[in-house]
Write a protein that binds this DNA or RNA. Sequence first.
DNA 1: TATTGTTATACTCTATAACTATA
DNA 2: TATAGTTATAGAGTATAACAATA
Lengths: 170, 170
Amino acid sequence: MSSLNPSQATARRSSRLTDLGIVDALVQTSFLVQEMLDDIAAEHELSIIQARLLGVLRDREPRMAHLAQLLGLSKQSTTGLVNRAERRGLVRRVSIPVGDERAVHVSLTDEGRRIAELLAAQVSMRVATVAADLPETNRSRLSMLLSQLVLRDADQHGTDLDPQPMRPTR
Amino acid sequence: MSSLNPSQATARRSSRLTDLGIVDALVQTSFLVQEMLDDIAAEHELSIIQARLLGVLRDREPRMAHLAQLLGLSKQSTTGLVNRAERRGLVRRVSIPVGDERAVHVSLTDEGRRIAELLAAQVSMRVATVAADLPETNRSRLSMLLSQLVLRDADQHGTDLDPQPMRPTR
DNA sequence: TATTGTTATACTCTATAACTATA
DNA sequence: TATAGTTATAGAGTATAACAATA
């Protein structure tokens, strides 16, 4: 159990083993979903972290420090991440005339926004496809159960609340 | 939707929004689990890929080429990965006297095995803990639904079958 | 003096191309 | 000639420490 292995707990294929147990089920599902996200990002020649960056910027123009916090990175890593995205024309650094002169805000370029929206749409479609295997009743049941899991964890760990989509792990 | 963002679709905390929708529920769950795996690996000063390496080696001593395939890496990346793990005393390269003289098998050291087992146990505990929030009935229902998802996907994508635990994504 | 962001430096992880040594 | 694995090289991603500019 615990399968630090994606795909693996498959055990003999097509066997009547239909329950992996809660731990393996969760771990393997996470690998499955992450692989989908990674594939989608890769189709745009992006890493998951670059895709997350675009996702986070879909509805805000945070300063470097806030961006670092949103992505769970050090400020130095964020500098590098933004540098590479800027070099590719996906984001830009903007300075706000009034306020702290030291601050820099990061914003999507038109191209960056185009890709960010594409990514969001593709993730929705692709992930929905996996779930489409389940009959409607089970799908909404699953949705609710996972939502409870996620929301309870967020409550407990005081996860901040951001109403924006498109941010993966790291 | 599609939230390439972990933790984020939290929306206003403690609101009565109890259903994120199947897509966000799956995506956020995947981030939640991956973060747990990453935290556990980090407690042992390991990256997720190093933890996966140990997990894969728990029940085999594959050649470099097979290992690369199991981890989804190029053979060159695998050489580097094994080099670093070997330098830390977690794995060792062994040559089998008979057979292809070019082949190298990778095996856990005692220390590597100790850590591999620890990781597996911790993943089991930690992941089970999140699920523990759900009442028993819901938990087994969730386990079955996710298992269906994972197993159906494995069937469709002809995912190989390995009876070993501890292998994450990348 | 404290904070914001960048620079300098170092490692891990990953890939492609070229190479060595068997087969 | 083909295969197993390593070496060479390059670049992304990450972190810590030191620094510049502004508060």
